[in-house]
Write a protein that binds this DNA or RNA. Structure first.
Lengths: 171, 171
DNA sequence: AATAATCGTTATTAATCATACCAAATAGTC
DNA sequence: GACTATTTGGTATGATTAATAACGATTATT
């Protein structure tokens, strides 16, 4: 059902190329233009690379960055409930349910009804969860962050981290 | 298109949860733990903020960061086809179709059959597209990037950009 | 001429992200 | 104590983004 649009919508002016297109044969590299100056663009590309590397480094444990951050936060903040953990990570409560279902089904954490407020579920890691988290931390430190240190150097890595924190906070 | 999420304040308990339940009463901020040292985490949070701000700054033109980057690239690289542009931006060709449909329906760009290779569609901006792009660039420069310069300072901003480019390249 | 590769495209699935709403429990108010 | 409002976890649902397989048309390779 295609086959009809391209011809009509005529831009009044091609700007550079002739009338009806004639891409010269040579293929030089595409110019990024102002794109390389766009912080958001570089930020996103870098973030995707880093996440890919993270997943690769921790692949043996089958943990996503998000799952890792949840386990970390639960471990560091015993006695907190779902909304507290979810909010801290910027995860919406409805979306946090499936995430916890998954972690709980893998026996990495548990929900326990709070005695004080029987609406809320206190989160805590299982022994298994603590073990997996410890392994994950080790993999992240020795493989993932180590590689970052190689590429950036410790000083730059620290500076980068500081600036990102500034952005996430003051922006 | 509302754009508010962001975490709220949290309150609950400090201590250490024993075996089963019983969160004491009082609050205390949630501890981020090793999370604040995780480059990937900070990177993602910062990226989300920056994108939100970008969208806000250019809201009057109704352009997403992705659309802006496409327009920019087409403008800077006349005579290129869809796959070239898409690949450069890390967009998969199938997903690029809808994106171009949208931009073309808004008369910001056009697909033209190449004379050399009748399979491919050469992309180019319309006059309208060039106008919108120019306006977008101005908004981005005077509002978005200007704000970044305020928060980070020009030197830091440049350093940050450099490191992100390094990551996207050498990582 | 036959086969393989490329380009734009459709269709489809998965993963992320967001909103509205509900029952149960709690907090506040009168 | 009764009434209302709010909070918590949850369901259902929709929008957006991302990924894969396959197809017709065209070009490249042999």
């Amino acid at each position: 059902m295609t086959g009809s649009r391209a011809a009509e919508l005529n831009a009044s002016k091609p700007g550079k190329a002739g009338d009806v297109v004639d891409d010269h044969e040579e293929a030089g590299q595409i110019k990024m233009g102002e794109l390389s100056e766009l912080l958001g663009y570089s930020l996103k590309r870098a973030q995707l690379r880093i996440f890919d590397d993270f997943i690769r480094c921790v692949a043996s444990l089958n943990l996503t960055p998000a799952q890792f951050s949840v386990l970390l936060l639960i471990d560091r903040n015993p006695g907190r409930n779902q909304t507290e953990i979810a909010n801290t990570l910027g995860i919406l409560r409805p979306n946090f349910v499936a995430m916890l279902d998954s972690l709980e089904s893998r026996e990495l954490c548990v929900r326990v009804r709070s005695a004080n407020d029987r609406r809320s579920h206190i989160l805590m890691l299982t022994d298994n969860g603590r073990t997996i988290l410890a392994r994950a931390k080790k993999l992240v430190a020795t493989k993932h962050e180590a590689r970052l240190n190689e590429v950036l150097g410790p000083a730059n890595r620290a500076a980068l981290l500081g600036m990102l924190a500034t952005l996430a906070r003051d922006f």
